[in-house]
Structures are given as structure tokens and as C-alpha cells.
């Protein structure tokens, strides 16, 4: 398999631009997913009436529809009722819509893993709800949630490949484009894989580092 290195060098900048876009969309989507996830998991954890039902409906919809469908809805559907969003905004919103539910479930499983006796022990020391959350529940929940959160981060970065479906020039889109234009399939695909690996491998390594650290900290009575 002789690779055409001229081609690779020539179109490298396309990939770099696309990678920057992919990272930007993923970063914002993941950040907002965490915010949505924290809010939704708190609502469920504290059994806040009404809002809790809305949250579980959201989680079901989010987890049971493909991201591409969610993006089509945002990009092609919303304009019909007069809401026009740029493709990149749609991508971030879509990723947040999807990621929020995954993050929420990960965080909630962490919160619920903290034993009731821990909360009562804090209460018997006169600690209020907020202080108990901050000092007792949250740190212990985090240790349980982090592996799930890390898995979600990687999952969401990979899911960004779907945004090419709404004509956003991410890595997937550029690769598709180049194949369509020049039929240099090998080079194009190798570059695509390499760029995803460049983005994902460090994050994976960082995630397993954190997980190991948490395991060493492994409190548990």
C-alpha cells in the first residue's frame, strides 16, 4: 500500500481545523452535559416533586433517541417554528441533550451509593443539608461516579462524529469530503483514525490515571 504523502501534507490543515472544531464542540458539549447532569441528578436525588418527573421523561427521551435524530430535529425541525440555530450551536446543544442524561445517571449512581448512615451521622453532628452534601456526600459520590463520567466523556467525543450529518466540518465531515473529491480513501481514513486517536488517547490515559488514584484512595470502611 503506497501512501500518497503529498496528499497527506496538503490536506493536513483541513484535518487540523476539523480537529479543532471537533474538540471545541466536544468540550462545550461535555461541559454543559456535566452542568445538566449535576442539576438533573440533584433533582432526582432529593426527590423534588414535579421537576423530577420532567427530568425522568427527559432522560428517557435523551437515552432512547440517536444523536443524529436529535441534531436533525434541532437543525431542520426548529427553523420550522422560527428558531434558527447555527450548525455549531445545534451540535453543542444536541451533544448536551444527549450527554446530560448520561452524566446525570453516572452522578446519581454515585450519590445513591453513599450510605444513609453517613448522612444521619452528619445530621447528628448538627450539619445542615448543604454542608452534608459538600463535605460528606459529594466527595464519596465522586469516587464512585468518576469512572462513569470518564466513560461518558470518551463516548461523547466519539459521538461528535455524527455532527457531520448537519454539515458541520468536523473530522468525519472532512474525511467524507476528501473521499468524495479525490478517492484517496486510504490516506483519508488513516488520517481520520490518527486524529481521533490523538484526541482520545491522552484523555483515556488521563481517565485511567484518575481511576487508579481513586482506587488507591479507596476509602470504604
Amino acid at each position: 500500500m503506497g501512501l500518497n504523502f503529498d496528499f497527506i501534507v496538503k490536506y493536513l490543515p483541513w484535518y487540523v481545523d476539523a480537529a479543532i472544531l471537533t474538540v471545541r464542540v466536544a468540550f462545550l458539549g461535555i461541559l454543559f452535559s456535566l452542568v445538566v447532569g449535576i442539576i438533573c441528578s440533584a433533582v432526582q436525588y432529593y426527590h423534588i416533586p414535579v421537576i423530577r418527573t420532567i427530568v425522568s421523561v427527559y432522560i428517557e427521551i435523551s437515552r432512547n433517541t440517536p444523536l443524529l435524530v436529535q441534531l436533525f430535529f434541532l437543525y431542520f425541525g426548529l427553523p420550522k417554528i422560527g428558531i434558527l440555530l447555527s450548525a455549531e450551536t445545534c451540535a453543542v446543544v444536541g451533544l448536551t441533550f444527549l450527554g446530560g442524561s448520561y452524566m446525570s445517571e453516572s452522578i446519581r449512581s454515585g450519590l445513591e451509593s453513599v450510605e444513609k448512615s453517613q448522612i444521619e451521622s452528619a445530621a447528628s453532628l448538627g450539619m445542615g443539608k448543604v454542608l452534608t452534601m459538600k463535605e460528606v456526600i459529594f466527595p464519596q459520590a465522586l469516587a464512585v461516579s468518576v469512572p462513569g463520567i470518564c466513560a461518558n466523556v470518551i463516548f461523547l467525543i466519539k459521538e461528535t462524529s455524527v455532527v457531520s450529518g448537519i454539515a458541520l466540518a468536523d473530522l468525519m465531515y472532512v474525511a467524507n469530503d476528501l473521499i468524495g473529491l479525490y478517492y484517496e480513501t486510504d490516506e483519508t481514513l488513516i488520517m481520520l483514525v490518527l486524529f481521533y486517536l490523538i484526541i482520545l488517547l491522552p484523555i483515556s490515559a488521563f481517565a485511567s490515571f484518575i481511576e487508579r488514584r481513586l482506587r488507591y484512595a479507596g476509602f470504604g470502611n
Binding site: 448512615s117 453517613q118 444521619e120 451521622s121 452528619a122 447528628s124 463535605e135 460528606v136 466527595p139 464519596q140 469516587a143 484512595a217 476509602f219 470504604g220 470502611n221
Partner: peptide, 13 residues
């Protein structure tokens, strides 16, 4: 009112 439980319930972290 201080209370001590059977299962100690120290904060593990």
C-alpha cells in the same frame, strides 16, 4: 445532643 451509632459511621474520606 451527641449520638454514637453501632456502625461508627466515621467519614471514610
Amino acid at each position: 445532643i451527641g449520638m454514637v451509632f453501632q456502625s461508627y459511621d466515621l467519614f471514610p474520606h
